[in-house]
């Protein structure tokens, strides 16, 4: 589904990603871990098409297409979704209006008619229940004045509405209380099908108790320095990153 080859990328002339290689198949869940500032969010930005990040070398192929040629909206229509580490506030735009517009743009891209108001309300109700988001939130402006946890729940709600094929969840677990973490993880699991794939960026092994990863990667200084099964997450939780840094120094 997704193939990343020797990806180099920079922000303001500073190289952040220094040769990433990653392959993800439909039905898989991959976790990306790594110290602060190692480039995890930058990688997510490249995949979702943020032009702040400049790709200088390498390829990103999604379902056989060159992803780097596509606009962010085209990537979204093609099934890519990014759950933001820091969701953005948009004053004056209600979640309802936001989601209706987004959904209809997706339908337009597929050559379908706009959704009927009653179907839209039904869909909203269903997805709200799935992520247990408070009804009063969806009438408010997008993320404006939301608590940290509410913002993250709202990301998963949007994901549920748009039903992506490839979801990248950038630290969706941080800021969530234990119950919310379970709810959000359940939401993600319920949305899982053999046809879609998920990249979970996290600092904590706890999320991976709920969302079981097929692979765990460690991103360090712009490179994937270690990839293994889910036991790697537990090892990291226990020992931190120092042993990996040492291993690298010894190499």
């Amino acid at each position: 589904m997704l193939i990343i080859k020797d990806l180099h990328a920079e922000i303001d002339g500073k190289e952040i990603l220094k040769g990433i290689n990653l392959e993800l198949k439909a039905g898989e869940v991959h976790a990306i871990m790594g110290p602060n500032g190692s480039g995890k969010s930058t990688l997510a930005s490249v995949i979702s098409g943020r032009d702040l990040v400049k790709v200088t070398k390498g390829k990103v192929i999604y379902k056989g297409n060159n992803l780097l040629d596509m606009s962010p909206e085209a990537r979204s229509h093609a099934g890519i979704f990014l759950g933001f580490q820091y969701p953005i506030e948009i004053p004056g735009v209600s979640i309802i209006n936001f989601m209706k517009t987004a959904l209809n743009e997706h339908r337009k891209a597929r050559g379908e008619d706009a959704i009927s108001p009653s179907d839209f309300l039904k869909l909203m109700r269903e997805k709200k229940a799935l992520v247990e988001i408070d009804s009063s939130l969806v009438n408010r402006s997008v993320n404006e004045g939301f608590s940290g946890g509410e913002k993250k729940r709202n990301e998963i709600f949007q994901m549920a509405m748009l039903e992506p094929e490839l979801a990248i969840l950038d630290e969706t677990d941080s800021g969530l209380d234990i119950d919310a973490l379970r709810t959000v993880a359940n939401g993600v699991n319920k949305l899982k099908t053999p046809k879609n794939a998920t990249i979970v960026i996290t600092h904590y092994q706890r999320l991976l108790d709920y969302i079981i990863p097929d692979r765990v990667h460690v991103l360090y200084k712009g490179r994937i320095v270690k990839s293994s099964g889910r036991e790697l997450a537990m090892e990291l939780e226990e020992k931190g990153y120092d042993w990996i840094k040492k291993e690298l120094a010894n190499d």
Binding site: D51, G92, S141
Partner: peptide, 26 residues
């Protein structure tokens, strides 16, 4: 904010419209 809206599939023009409209709505 522009990128946030576009990442949900809303084209640039429409996203700009929505934001300006939201700005006015207050």
């Amino acid at each position: 904010a522009m990128f946030y809206l576009r990442s949900r599939g809303i084209p640039e023009n429409e996203a700009r419209m929505m934001m300006m409209y939201g700005f006015a709505e207050e």
